[in-house]
Amino acid sequence: MSRTKAGAPRGEVLRMAHRLRAALARGARHTSPCPQARQHGLGARIVGSAVFFAVGTGLMLHAGQMLLRGLRQPRDGAGAARGTPLRPLPARIDGLGTAAAHLSADRSAAAGGDLYDVIATEHGVRVVMGDVRGHGIGATATVAAVLGCLREAVHDEVELARVLRRLERALARHLRERATAGPGSDSPAAEEFVTVLLLEIRRDGEMRALNCGHPWPFLLGEGHAQPLAGTEPLPPLGPFPLPVELPYVDCGRLRPGEALFLHTDGVTDARDGQGRFFPLPAVLAEAVRADPVSPHAVLRAVAAQLLRHTGGRPADDVAVVVLSNDRQTGRAPSGARDSDTCGSAAGARPATTNPQPTNYQ
């Protein structure tokens, strides 16, 4: 049954209109028979008819607007469901403090081409950070396909390499389906790819990673912000098949009180009016002067500086996740560190990989 904006059935509105017309008719029958009275009665009927016409027209227009709104609402709801594959993170996940933010370059979309998630599993806390080529509905659908696969694979698979293999298969299947669906996407399926960083943080703080073309995170703590640079990343998922061997990168340990800053290239590639890139290392160094490192404080500081740098309008999707180790066990002695970073960043030790990589077909 159709309803008005106030929730009343449309039949009730029509009954109200009929009662109004009957009341006007009764007023006409009770007019005086004298000529002057008949003139006044005629005037009353004219005015009444005009009022009835105006009210009836308004009711019909209102009913039409309600009908159109009712037809639009299901489509809007479906669009909202498709546009929000990202989900808010809890404040703490298995002893790790979290903070995350996402900003779509497409003002009409609830989400864009960036993806992230942090999931506690029996294998450790597993983190994904990724970036789909392009924007809009096509990119958002790809984000949903990748995250849907990831949220099962991280629990099922012991090795990160197997998680990455499943993401590769899920992406290939999704792109095939899009290609057979025909035109209509703002990003052709044949040209789409996804950068992905898979990170595993174990209970003792040990970190392992697989990186497919994504920016490496920053390690924050003790007044410093140091790139967690690793070996040369693998190619992004999509254009080329993964190599036969996928050894993970050993990234050392995340000690209690330290944090990780994960981001998409929408942060580092952001430019101001003069074309200058966003100075992320300097902004992070300023944000971690306070001790201990607070994920929300770091997130607020970076977001404020980024919006100021871009004049409030970043040209690309932006996603940021900050994770702090709030666990109180396994604290290393003061001044002592394990392999802090993975890779060849300034002051970092060389990256190591698992000595016996498993060959996954």
Rank of each mutant, 00 (worst) to 15 (best):
P243G: 11
R300C: 01
H309A: 08
L228V: 05
E168N: 14
P236V: 03
D186H: 06
R313W: 06
L171M: 11
G275M: 06
A44S: 13
D131V: 02
P314N: 05
R166L: 14
A345R: 02
V158D: 13
C149M: 15
A44I: 03
D114C: 02
A50F: 00
P333F: 02
V127L: 12
E192R: 05
Y116V: 05
I137E: 09
P88Q: 07
R300K: 03
T84V: 06
V154A: 14
L103E: 04
A78I: 06
H40A: 13
A8C: 11
G27P: 03
Q226F: 03
V318M: 02
G77Y: 04
E192V: 05
M66K: 14
G79V: 06
A91H: 10
E122T: 09
E159H: 15
F52V: 11
R75D: 12
V127Y: 10
G83R: 03
A22M: 07
L59W: 15
R75K: 09
A301R: 04
I201N: 11
V288P: 01
V125N: 08
L284H: 02
Q36T: 12
V127W: 10
L228D: 06
G41R: 11
P350E: 05
R208E: 13
L89Y: 07
G343W: 01
I46S: 08
A189R: 07
A139N: 03
Q226V: 10
L160M: 15
G83H: 07
L299A: 04
V146D: 03
